[in-house]
Amino acid sequence: MTAAVTEVAVTGVGVVLPGLNEPGGLPHGPVAGAAPVDPAALIGKKGLRFKDRATQLGLCMAKAALTDAGLLGPRGLLVPGDRVGVVVSSNLGNADTVCRAVATIAEENTGALSPMDTPNASSNIIASEIAIRFGLRGPNLTVCNGVTSGLDALRWARLTLRSGRADHMVVAGVEPDNDITRRLTGARMVDGGAAVVVGRTDAVGAAGPRLLLGPSLRTEKLPDCAARLADAASGPARDAAAGLWLGAGPSAVPPGAESADLSGWGECSGALGLLQCATAVAWADSGRTEPVYALLGGADGEASGTVWTPPERAV
């Protein structure tokens, strides 16, 4: 089956952060005094035992996004499960499980490993558990390639939809905060993240598109990526100075453009691209019609960028 349309849109969003469950508050930073997210309070205790922190958080945000998109009701999925896939972005999601297993093998032997803990050592555990929980039988994969993985996960979801292999994709970005992740990164992690549901515009149904996903690009350096995004925005249809820039340093933001900083939530790693997308949805939901430019990349590594457009600005 080949998709007849090329447009891909965000139709639902779920934010799971301490003290925050909607995207509009993301640019304002952490909620003072907020307690850590309690997954059992969001989706119930059933099925959470023996699952690692990142998987529990991922289940919460996937449920919120699917519900927001109108694809999940009280009795389960409202569309054919074989037409819904999952992409998860997480670089450190199960690092605590892997490190614990390695330590157990080194100190004792493989026989000392818990059979209930072993499945959590799979890099794809979050995506597979989301699929099992909600009956999503479409393509299923995990992206864990460093700082750009959030936007790369959205790119893979878009490619999957445009190929006709699915009608909807759940894309989640999640990172846990624990002793292992802090030791590996030297920083406090976000302990949460965001998920969006993206779908082809001919399959989004009554919910309608919230945000259109434009093409993405990759470069060797972040400044080059920012410059190419600005060039792509030039012309009468788009003005790089009339929009929102996410993830760009002050020197890369065109004069007069708005920017938002999500760094206050801690080290976001694989969750950052999805938190950026959730911020863009909030921008569009607020009535803004200008594009949103998102960038991810380090000082010395590859960079990824994309342009998201409120539906009224489709070109």
Rank of each mutant, 00 (worst) to 15 (best):
173 G>K: 03
303 A>P: 00
219 T>L: 09
171 V>G: 08
94 N>A: 10
179 D>C: 05
213 L>H: 03
136 L>D: 09
120 N>R: 12
303 A>R: 04
214 G>C: 09
74 P>W: 01
121 A>R: 13
249 G>K: 11
314 A>L: 06
68 D>V: 02
223 P>K: 06
252 A>W: 05
246 L>W: 00
131 A>R: 03
188 R>V: 15
310 P>I: 02
114 S>V: 14
195 A>G: 10
271 A>P: 10
205 G>N: 02
193 G>F: 10
270 G>Q: 12
283 W>I: 07
46 K>F: 03
144 C>S: 15
187 A>I: 05
29 G>H: 05
275 L>D: 11
43 I>F: 09
70 G>I: 11
16 V>L: 08
71 L>E: 10
236 P>R: 15
308 W>P: 00
16 V>N: 06
5 V>Y: 03
264 G>P: 12
266 G>I: 14
228 R>V: 05
195 A>W: 13
188 R>A: 10
29 G>E: 09
311 P>H: 01
42 L>H: 10
107 E>P: 01
309 T>F: 08
259 S>D: 06
187 A>C: 02
231 D>G: 06
41 A>C: 00
169 M>P: 04
218 R>V: 15
207 A>V: 15
93 G>W: 00
13 V>F: 04
286 S>V: 08
295 L>R: 03
2 T>H: 13
211 L>N: 12
169 M>D: 00
29 G>F: 05
4 A>Y: 00
187 A>T: 07
101 A>R: 06
70 G>T: 12
218 R>S: 15
59 L>E: 11
292 V>N: 01
126 I>V: 15
244 L>T: 09
250 P>H: 05
127 A>V: 12
283 W>Q: 06
227 A>G: 04
288 R>V: 13
259 S>I: 05
54 A>I: 06
132 I>H: 07
97 T>C: 11
3 A>E: 13
222 L>H: 09
160 T>F: 06
116 M>F: 15
145 N>A: 07
185 T>G: 09
272 L>P: 02
47 G>L: 13
34 A>G: 03
45 K>D: 13
110 T>N: 10
294 A>D: 13
38 D>F: 00
150 G>W: 09
166 A>Y: 04
118 T>N: 05
1 M>I: 15
1 M>V: 15
90 S>R: 04
120 N>T: 07
262 L>H: 02
132 I>G: 00
122 S>V: 07
147 V>D: 03
16 V>A: 11
262 L>E: 06
95 A>I: 11
181 T>E: 02
153 A>Y: 05
180 I>L: 05
14 G>K: 01
304 S>Q: 15
164 G>K: 07
294 A>L: 15
158 R>T: 14
222 L>K: 12
